Simulated scan of single mutants.
Amino acid sequence: MSKQKALVEVKQLKQYFPIKGGILGRTVNHVKAVDDISFSIYEGETLSIVGESGCGKSTTGRAILRLDEPSGGEIFYDQKNILSFNKMDMRKLRKDMQVIFQDPFASLNPRQTVGQILGEALAIQNVVPAEKRHDRITELLAHVGLRPDHIDRYPHEFSGGQRQRIGIARALAVEPKLIICDEAVSALDVSIQAQVLNLLKELQRQYKLTYLFISHDLGVVRHISDRVMVMYLGKVVEIADKKSLFENPQHPYTKALLSAIPVPNRKEKRERVMLSGDVPSPINPPQGCRFHTRCPFAVDRCKTEVPQLTGVSNTHQVACHLV
């Protein structure tokens, strides 16, 4: 994987959200949602980000899209630093970078038909001439498993799975290279999840797409990923190819997450790793390794020194003093 071309390179990304206080509304502190992380997304791969709620998964995705302006660091798309782009440059780049949101109902305009929702994306980016847009919309609906007569229906007339298919069609409409899937299947029933995941994999093969897949469900991540990045409290603690991460996890936090995956076979025994305490506040995160307050193996060094990502193999990195 390391020999592939990096479509996106994130370097020392920070995303701090100000906390206002007092009569004058001055900034009194910051929520350190993402704090100095670096990683790459290679062309044609699916990189998944996993971790507990509040670890910075979705914030990272929004920062890459510049839906939120990062507080620091650099984001390179196709070797261009997009944080230096103006509004016009970003508008052109939006054609290459799309997103599928978690809630398929809230992300669709209830006053527009499916045809208007998809047609709007085609018109803004001028992907196809006006006279060919109806045919293109029908083609997109067919690609995601919907019928031509769905074009005149409104979002409330569809099931959750069908609405998410409309969201996928909207993302595909402008022929992007990168799609960020932000908990794209977490709101769906398990049977529908499988259908949507298989659809995403088929579309990736067909259109040579690159995915950043954000999820808390490790079962889903195992099905769709090429590589997996584990985040904890705004930091990357481990990043590896799927096989290495699931079969040979190195970080204590990763081991705890994997031990919580339900086992279909009741005869198969798995030792559950229970973590003590709650996730610390991102307003005032612990010094040193951020996981040391819950880690059963923490030593004095963990409390003072921030661990850096270290290579276990060519495709496996971990940020832990004990590895």
Rank of each mutant, 00 (worst) to 15 (best):
127 V>K: 12
127 V>W: 06
128 V>H: 02
135 D>A: 15
136 R>D: 00
137 I>R: 00
139 E>A: 03
140 L>H: 05
144 V>L: 14
146 L>V: 00
151 I>T: 09
152 D>L: 11
154 Y>A: 02
156 H>Y: 15
158 F>I: 04
158 F>W: 05
161 G>Q: 09
161 G>A: 08
162 Q>S: 01
163 R>N: 04
163 R>W: 06
166 I>A: 05
167 G>N: 14
170 R>Q: 04
171 A>G: 01
178 L>G: 06
182 D>A: 08
186 S>W: 00
186 S>N: 01
187 A>T: 09
189 D>A: 00
190 V>L: 12
190 V>R: 04
191 S>L: 05
195 Q>G: 12
199 L>F: 04
200 L>R: 09
201 K>S: 06
202 E>R: 12
203 L>H: 00
204 Q>K: 13
205 R>C: 03
206 Q>A: 14
207 Y>A: 12
210 T>F: 15
211 Y>C: 12
212 L>Q: 10
212 L>C: 11
214 I>W: 10
215 S>W: 02
215 S>L: 01
216 H>K: 08
218 L>C: 05
222 R>W: 09
225 S>Q: 09
226 D>P: 04
226 D>G: 09
230 V>S: 10
231 M>K: 11
231 M>Q: 15
233 L>V: 06
233 L>I: 07
235 K>M: 06
235 K>V: 02
238 E>T: 01
239 I>W: 12
240 A>Y: 09
244 S>P: 07
245 L>T: 03
246 F>P: 02
247 E>D: 14
248 N>P: 00
249 P>G: 06
249 P>C: 07
250 Q>P: 02
250 Q>W: 02
250 Q>G: 03
252 P>R: 02
254 T>A: 08
254 T>P: 10
255 K>I: 08
259 S>C: 03
262 P>E: 06
262 P>R: 07
263 V>A: 07
263 V>L: 11
266 R>C: 06
268 E>A: 10
269 K>S: 15
